[in-house]
C-alpha cells in the first residue's frame, strides 16, 4: 500500500493562535481514514493544508504526483440569484458522458438532474456533491463532515453509500466526521485531533483511549451501532496484539 498523501510536522497559526501543532498524517491507497475532534480543533484546516489550499507555517506536505482528489465540502450554498440546474452544476466538472451516467446511477440522483440546485434537500445535496467528486475519477476522496444537515436515516444511507463507492471505485477516503458511531465499522483508522493528534489507531482502540474519552465522554451508546465481530485485539496504539482467545 503506497502513500497518496503525507504531511509531517505541520503547524498552522492564525493570528498567533495555534490551530495545528506538529501534525503528522498519511493516507495510503485504498484506506479509509476518519478525522474526529471537537469543534474548532483544526480538522478543516488540516484537510485544507493536505489539499494545498493553505500553506502551513511549519512542516511539509507531500502528494503523490498523479493524485486526483475528489472533494466534498461541508456544505454548498449556491446563491439563489444564479439559476443553476443540477445537471449543469455536474457538467461544470470533468468526465465523459458514459462516466456521467455511471456516477449519476451510483449515487442515485437521476431524478434530480433537471431540478434547480436551490431546491434540493440537505441529503440530496450531499449526493450531488459526491457525484461531482466522483466525476473527477479520484484516487482520494476527501469529505468534510459529509452528513451535516442530513437526517438520521439519511446519514446511515450516506455512510453506506460512501463505503460502497470506496469499494466499487477503489479509492482511498479521508473524512472529517463527528459521528464516530456511524463511521466506526467502515473506517480503517481514526485520528483524534485537538490541534495536535491526541490519539490515533483502529476505531475501537481510539474509542477506549483516555484522551478520546476526555474529549467525547465514554457514553455507552457511542458503541451501540458500530459493534462488529473482530477476531483480534488492539493495544492503545491500534496494533494488533493477537487473536481472540
Amino acid at each position: 500500500m503506497s502513500a497518496l498523501i503525507t504531511c509531517e510536522g505541520v503547524s498552522v497559526r492564525f493570528a498567533n493562535e495555534a490551530v495545528l501543532e506538529q501534525v503528522n498524517l498519511t493516507v495510503s491507497e485504498g484506506e479509509v481514514v476518519t478525522l474526529i475532534g471537537p469543534n474548532g480543533s483544526g480538522k478543516t484546516t488540516l484537510i485544507h493544508v493536505l489539499m494545498g489550499l493553505l500553506k502551513p507555517n511549519l512542516g511539509s506536505v507531500w502528494r503523490a504526483p498523479d493524485l486526483h482528489i475528489g472533494y466534498v465540502p461541508q456544505k454548498l450554498a449556491v446563491d439563489y440569484t444564479m439559476p443553476l440546474s443540477v445537471a449543469r452544476f455536474l457538467s461544470l466538472g470533468s468526465g465523459t458522458a458514459k462516466k456521467f451516467t455511471d456516477v449519476v446511477h451510483t449515487v442515485g440522483i437521476e431524478k434530480l438532474l433537471n431540478r434547480q440546485i436551490h431546491h434540493v434537500s440537505g441529503g440530496e445535496m450531499q449526493r450531488i456533491l459526491l457525484a461531482r467528486a466522483l466525476l473527477k475519477q479520484p484516487s482520494l476522496m476527501v469529505l468534510d463532515e459529509p452528513a451535516q444537515g442530513v437526517d438520521f436515516q439519511g446519514q446511515s444511507e450516506l455512510y453506506h453509500l460512501i463505503g460502497e463507492i470506496k469499494n466499487a471505485w477503489n479509492c482511498a477516503v479521508l473524512m472529517v466526521s463527528h459521528d464516530l458511531h456511524f463511521v466506526m465499522s467502515a473506517t480503517d483508522r481514526v485520528i483524534c485531533l485537538n490541534h495536535h493528534v491526541c490519539c490515533s489507531g483502529q476505531p475501537e482502540s481510539v474509542a477506549l483511549h483516555p484522551e478520546y474519552q476526555r474529549l467525547f465522554g465514554s457514553s455507552k451508546h457511542n458503541f451501540a451501532i458500530y459493534n462488529h465481530h473482530h477476531d483480534h485485539h488492539h493495544d492503545l496504539h491500534g496494533n494488533v496484539i493477537g487473536p481472540k482467545p
Partner: peptide, 17 residues
Amino acid sequence: WRPLLLMTISEELAAVE
C-alpha cells in the same frame, strides 16, 4: 468563463480544482 463560474458557485471547490 468556467473558472469564474466555478468560483462564483464555490470559492473552495474552485481552489481544490
